[in-house]
């Protein structure tokens, strides 16, 4: 048991390390991403200035700038959590490396989690840099407590099963991440990334409550800007993790078995 866990941890670390080495070998891509993030912080600040005093934005916790910035950071982190593994898996499927990686004892969920580690860690690092720049240069005030940090971690962890499902679908349909695109679009529209959900029509607010990204975003804002997560949101996150975790692991296992049976681990 302990040996199996150690082997799994070693495989995860190796996959992270490979993706880190690949990213390091293409520094221009990372650099342009960092510059564009800093520019995005500036434009977020200007947008917030432009809508200052607009109805429904003044009362937002931390002010509209902090609120919008955390929404955009959430979109970036959620993209890494939901789409990171699926995009990497598709690239490896096209290249042929997926078959080589999955020829050994490493299986399904461990592999997919391994593929998502680098994108997720990078997105968290980017978020840290953005928050530091915004706090240092643009007066962003953060209110982080231990409870808030735990809520934030729960919110992000609850999105991980979606990433496993997205990778499973990519493995089967051999398209670049259809699930991730849907989740990202739905989150942008309904979860309150850029505007408060109260501006949506009543039926849309109800529908947005069913989105897994909605309580996760609430948790991230509560974690960074202070405030407690509502009980329904907390229950939704815990239930999502408790039920979605095992179901998504089973989903990856089924998709992998299907892909092996139909010759779909590679794009040959």
């Amino acid at each position: 048991m302990r040996r199996a866990l150690r082997a799994r941890a070693r495989a995860l670390a190796a996959l992270f390390w490979r993706d880190w080495l690949e990213a390091r070998a293409a520094p221009w891509s990372g650099l342009s991403r960092a510059v564009s993030l800093v520019l995005a912080v500036g434009s977020t600040h200007l947008v917030a200035q432009a809508v200052l005093g607009a109805p429904r934005t003044d009362a937002l916790p931390g002010g509209y700038f902090a609120w919008l910035l955390t929404g955009l950071l959430f979109a970036d982190i959620a993209h890494a959590l939901v789409s990171g593994a699926a995009e990497r898996l598709r690239a490896l499927q096209l290249q042929g490396g997926l078959e080589v990686d999955l020829q050994g004892p490493v299986r399904g969920a461990t592999y997919v989690v391994g593929l998502s580690l680098f994108p997720v860690v990078s997105a968290l690092a980017r978020a840290g840099v953005v928050l530091a720049v915004a706090a240092g240069a643009l007066g962003l005030r953060l209110d982080v407590t231990w409870l808030g940090a735990a809520q934030l971690a729960l919110g992000l962890a609850a999105l991980w099963p979606l990433g496993l499902v997205a990778a499973s679908v990519t493995l089967i349909v051999q398209r670049a991440d259809p699930v991730g695109r849907l989740v990202a679009a739905a989150a942008m529209l309904g979860s309150g990334v850029a505007y408060p959900r109260e501006v949506l029509p009543g039926w849309a607010v109800t529908a947005s409550n069913a989105l897994p990204t909605t309580p996760a975003l609430d948790a991230l804002r509560a974690g960074l800007l202070g405030g407690a997560l509502s009980a329904p949101a907390m229950i939704a996150l815990c239930a999502g993790l408790a039920l979605g975790g095992p179901l998504s692991v089973a989903c990856v296992a089924q998709a992998e078995a299907w892909a092996r049976r139909h010759g779909r681990l590679s794009a040959d």
Binding site: A11, L15, R18, E22, G97, G104
Partner: peptide, 21 residues
């Protein structure tokens, strides 16, 4: 198919060691 162009041979072999336990 077994290679990532920018990685060294050592990195490939180390990755294989980790994935094959």
């Amino acid at each position: 198919r077994a290679f990532h162009r920018r990685l060294t041979v050592r990195a490939h072999l180390a990755l294989a060691c980790a994935l094959l336990d």
